[in-house]
């Protein structure tokens, strides 16, 4: 079933904020096999010129999709999750993410297009501090196999 184009441009603020914890960064770094002390030791991070432990570049995947999850799950949108694969991912940074950051995430269904038998949907998420300082923007392209058939 084709995805509902009426959803293009719809914006979904995530409920609440995401508090970046040192232990979560440490867990994520361990899960990607990276033993860099800058991800675990505040002293090592400060010695490298950072205010606190820094997050790996792909860390925002942990919280950026939550805002769009509700939209993607709306039956009116028509997405069959069983057929979804991850097509592309991008992270654009204004500044790094640090332990102690309290972040807000607003996701937008920015594009829907058909390629062959597949439906492609791009979700763009803007991440800011609770004070409104821009931190990063992520782009997540999902492919629904056979969705346009």
């Amino acid at each position: 079933m084709a995805l509902n184009r009426d959803f293009v441009g719809r914006t979904y603020p995530a409920a609440g904020t995401y508090e970046v914890a040192r232990v979560k960064i440490k867990e994520f770094a361990a899960a990607i096999g990276d033993d860099n002390p800058i991800y675990r030791d505040p002293e090592a991070a400060r010695a490298a010129g950072h205010p606190d432990v820094i997050a790996p570049p792909t860390f925002p995947i942990v919280f950026t999709l939550s805002g769009a999850a509700e939209a993607l799950a709306d039956p009116e949108f028509g997405l069959n999750f069983a057929m979804v694969v991850h097509g592309e991912q991008r992270f654009e940074y204004t500044r790094p993410i640090y332990a102690g950051d309290e972040l807000k995430c607003t996701s937008t269904i920015s594009e829907i297009r058909s390629v062959g038998r597949n439906e492609l949907v791009t979700v763009t998420s803007d991440v800011t501090t609770v004070q409104g300082e821009p931190v990063c923007r992520t782009h997540n392209l999902l492919i629904e196999r056979g969705g346009a058939a």
């Binding site: 490298a48 997050a55 570049p57 991912q89 991008r90 940074y93 790094p96």
Partner: peptide, 10 residues
């Protein structure tokens, strides 16, 4: 430095 990465896409 992980903070040196300003854009990363695949």
């Amino acid at each position: 430095d992980p903070g040196a990465v300003v854009d990363y896409g695949v």
